[in-house]
């Protein structure tokens, strides 16, 4: 219930504004971390928009997330240097290991995969970051090893 209250407040704030939907969704995402269905339903109702329209806007902009992020964020660089040195292979290895692609989260909520443009460490290409730690000069085997290690750690935590 309480969560609905804060959305109602936001709706009241943005209702009269033209183009208020996007900043409104941004605020919602800041509060919850992503845009859950119930929140979009509230927003649609409050702004008198169709759910289809609101979801359409939310899925159009890359800065909105419709699913919660995983506990570990894997970012694969697809900048030019990484691209030519095999970012595709890194991506494939991640996909093979975690069974998810960019923009997705594993069912257990452990990992999310994203792509980023050049992070300015081209010397290490191809690379990925996991929770802001950089892993460079990756090969398929290397990726698998790193991920398995992390998975093992996570399991101990639980």
């Amino acid at each position: 219930m309480e969560k609905k209250v804060f959305i109602a407040d936001l709706i009241a704030k943005y209702r009269a504004k033209r183009g208020g939907l996007i900043p409104l969704l941004q605020e919602v995402q800041e509060r919850i971390g992503y845009l859950p269905r119930w929140a979009l339903e509230e927003v649609a109702q409050g702004l008198d928009l169709s759910l289809a329209k609101v979801v359409g806007v939310a899925t159009f902009y890359s800065f909105f997330r419709l699913k919660p992020k995983g506990r570990n964020i894997i970012r694969i660089c697809t900048g030019t240097a990484c691209h030519v040195r095999g970012a595709e292979k890194v991506m494939a290895a991640v996909k093979e290991e975690l069974e998810i692609g960019p923009g997705e989260t594993t069912a257990d909520g452990e990992f999310s995969v994203e792509t980023v443009a050049c992070i300015g460490a081209c010397g290490l290409a191809p690379l990925m970051t996991i929770n802001d730690e950089v892993y460079g000069r990756l090969t398929r085997e290397e990726v698998v090893r790193i991920l398995r290690e992390l998975e093992a750690k996570e399991e101990v935590k639980v």
Binding site: L40, S50, A52, K53, V55, G56, F60
Partner: peptide, 27 residues
Amino acid sequence: AHVYDFMERGIDTKVTSAYDDNLQETT
């Protein structure tokens, strides 16, 4: 009824109901 809209962007653009819901669950 406002059932459909454009979802996603670029090459992934899809015209469908919100969350691809079955039509009986929509308006």
